[in-house]
Amino acid sequence: MIQKGKAWKFGANIDTDLLAPISALTSAKPEDAYTECLKDVDPTFAPNCKEGDIFVADENLGIGSSREWAPQYLRSCGIRVILAKSFARIFYRNCFNLAVPALVCAETHKIATDDQLEVDMENGVVRNLTKGETYKCDTVPAHLMQIVADGGLMPHLKKKFKKAS
């Protein structure tokens, strides 16, 4: 799987309260409130993020709550791949379950917002087309890539139950 897109670069410790604020979760339609994603960090992100963009952060992305709204909101904004130096474990699993691959990349500090990236998930390579640089990222366990290939855990489960019946 290769994903090409524009980078949105954030720093370390982006937590789930920033990604999915309680005001969004308690609104009448939380699924539509993704426009509040990261409003306290960069209010230009949600309105300007485009389908296929790539979310890039430094250490500890997704620390905090188990709320799946956090990666769901990134997905609703258009994000299709996430790169970070490290992830909180629940957030990491939630990303794959929503078919948004989360890749560990030690060199995200070299990436800036608006850089054009090409992420080769099978081979663990990130190409920064803007800067002409290449970074390594961890490859993903096969069972997780299968969930992504199926379109997320829900379609994956549907397939499983269809087979069983």
């Binding site: 188990s66 799946e68 939630n94 379950n97 855990l153 829900m154």
Partner: peptide, 8 residues
């Protein structure tokens, strides 16, 4: 875990 995971 998250909501989809617990669904599984």
């Amino acid at each position: 875990v998250g909501a989809t995971e617990i669904t599984g």
